[in-house]
Design a protein around this nucleic acid. Sequence first.
DNA 1: ATGCCGTGGAAACCACGA
Length: 257
Amino acid sequence: MRIATYNINGIGARLPNLLRWLDERAPDVACLQELKAPQEKFPEKEIRDAGYGVIWHGQKSWNGVAILARGTDPKEMRRVLPGDPEDVHSRYIEATVHGVTIGCLYLPNGNPAPGPKFQYKLRWLDRFIDHAATLVARNEPVILAGDYNVIPTERDVYKPERWVDDALFRIEVREEFARLMGQGWTDAIRARYPNETIYTFWDFFRNAYERNAGLRIDHLLLNQNVRDRLTDAGVDRDVRGWERPSDHAPTWVDIRD
DNA sequence: ATGCCGTGGAAACCACGA
């Protein structure tokens, strides 16, 4: 069973790319972020015609998350991150698919830092860690997949010294991420490739993809129940080189049945 | 050191992203 996360940066502009990726790679579950579409403008028919059941939480202009499941409908568990009724950003949706609980998240960017956006990011991370604590110990498989907007370590960015003041790499954010991992999650890409340079995002400009000036910010965290079932993990980095690509590449895990 | 690019929405510029 392959579970992928893919920040598509606008489902309107990215639909052909998304449909090609679903057709060629056939992930069993796909967590999408940055739909950038209101609820009623999500291309449900095209997704279903491609063979996927789907739930989504849209928002005009920004954010927006979805969970696709091949040949079945994801069973929705929640569509907001608990802890702040006044937070109206569409950044979290959670479902079970074939007995696996899957949280799909789009963590706030947080730039510029410091500032209100950075404070929002830290608050959101705090709420996310609280929610993750309720999931990590479950005696059932749980995977938290998405665009974390967190560079976990120096190995995960092409030039760490340039990013120390950025909201994706600031020490407060890295410490929060480490606190989350301390609950007992497994970073699947890092578990599969302990010592390699792996990126999931390349900026649109300055030929970042061609120079491999990337970041690893899309993550799949596995709880202890599912960790031992991990057989493979990777990044579909070639998708970043397709026509009209997102700036992120699909990132995935394979889980033994 | 920096939105130089890309998307969406509104209205031929701006907000936002990382």
